[in-house]
Computed example of a mutant assay.
Amino acid sequence: MPELHTAPNLGALYLKAAATGPTRRGGELPDTEYVLRGITIDPAQLAEYNRVCGFGLRDELPITYPHILSFPASVQLMTDKGFPFPLVGLVHVANRIKQDRPLLVTDELSQKVRVADLRPHPKGKQFDVVTETSVDDEVVWRETSTYLRVGKRDENAPQQRRREVEPGAASGTWRVPADIGREYAAVSGDRNPIHLHPLTAKVFGFPKAIAHGMWSKARCLAALEGRLPGAFTVDVDFAKPLLVPSRADFTMRSTGSGWDFALHSRSGKPHLTGSIRR
C-alpha cells in the first residue's frame, strides 16, 4: 500500500499520459492502493470551487468536494506502468458517493484510492476507481467512479440500465457558459482537453468543448442545497455530453426517501440522471 507524502503533480502526469498512452495494450488492473494522509482544506480553493459549482459558503464541504482532493491519486493510478488503458479516451459513465456524515472545513482527512472490478461493457470494458475518505481513522465518505474504455464490442456483456427521469416541467433552466470547462479545471485539476477548448475537443471527436460530468453532478446538488440530509448516497449516470455553451433543464422530484433528478438538453435528451437516498 504505497503512501503518498504529497498529492501527485497533475501537470507531470498528463504529460506522462500523452507519452505512454499509445503503449497501453489492455490487460488486468493493478492491485495498487495509494494512501494520502494529513489532507487539510484550503479555504480559498474551496470558496472558488463553491462559486464555480453553485454552492454557498458553509463550514460543511459539498459532498462532491473530496472527489477533487483524491483526483491526483486517481490519475497517478491510471498513468502507472501497470495500468492497462490510455488515460486519454476514458469515458466517465457513472459516479456514486456515500456520505455517513458531513465533512467539515476543519477536518484533517486521509484518503485511499484504488482501481477495481474490470468487467465487460457492450462498448468495451469498464472499471471503477474506488476512494475512501477518513477522519480520525473512521471512513465517512466513499466514492465509486466508473470509467469506460471504448473498444471491441462485447455482445455478451450485460446491458446497461440508466435511471429514467422524465423531463417534465423544468425546476430550472441553466445557461452553461463556454468557459465552464476551464473554470472547473482550475478548481479541480481535471484538464482533459475535451473540456478546455473547442479545437482540442474536436481532436477527440466532439463538435464543441463539453462540461465535466462532475461539474454537472455538483451543480445539480447545489440546486438542492439546504434540503439534503447529513448522511445520504447520491448516484448519477452520465449520458449525452453537455456541449458548451448551451442551456440545460434541471428537473427533480421527491420520492419520499430522497429525490430523483436529471439534467436534460432543451430537446429532452438526458445529459445526467441521478438519485439521492437517505
Rank of each mutant, 00 (worst) to 15 (best):
V203A: 07
P198V: 05
P245S: 04
A209K: 12
P193I: 04
D190G: 08
V187E: 03
H197G: 08
T233P: 08
A185T: 02
A222G: 11
V244Q: 13
G213F: 00
K240V: 09
S216P: 11
E225T: 08
A248I: 09
G213T: 01
F232Y: 15
S246K: 04
F206H: 09
V234K: 05
V203D: 00
A248T: 03
G230W: 01
T200S: 15
A223D: 10
P198F: 06
P245R: 02
L242V: 06
A223F: 06
E225Y: 07
S246L: 14
I194M: 07
L196V: 07
I210V: 10
D190N: 09
T233R: 15
S246G: 14
W215Q: 14
H212C: 11
K240I: 06
R191N: 12
A239G: 14
V244T: 14
I210K: 00
R191V: 12
N192F: 04
A248F: 01
I194Q: 03
P241W: 02
L243C: 10
K208S: 15
S216Q: 15
H195L: 15
T233D: 03
H197V: 04
H212K: 05
A209S: 15
G213P: 02
R191K: 13
F238C: 00
G230H: 00
K217W: 01
R219G: 11
P229V: 00
M214G: 03
P229A: 02
L199M: 08
L224F: 01
L224N: 00
F204S: 14
P207E: 10
A218L: 10
V234I: 07
R219N: 13
S216D: 13
V236D: 11
A218I: 11
A201H: 07
A239S: 14
Y184L: 07
A211K: 01
N192G: 05
F204T: 13
A209P: 14
W215K: 14
L199I: 08
K202P: 11
H197L: 15
A231D: 14
V244I: 13
P245G: 02
V203Q: 05
P193E: 10
V187M: 07
S246Y: 08
F204G: 11
N192A: 06
A218R: 09
A186E: 13
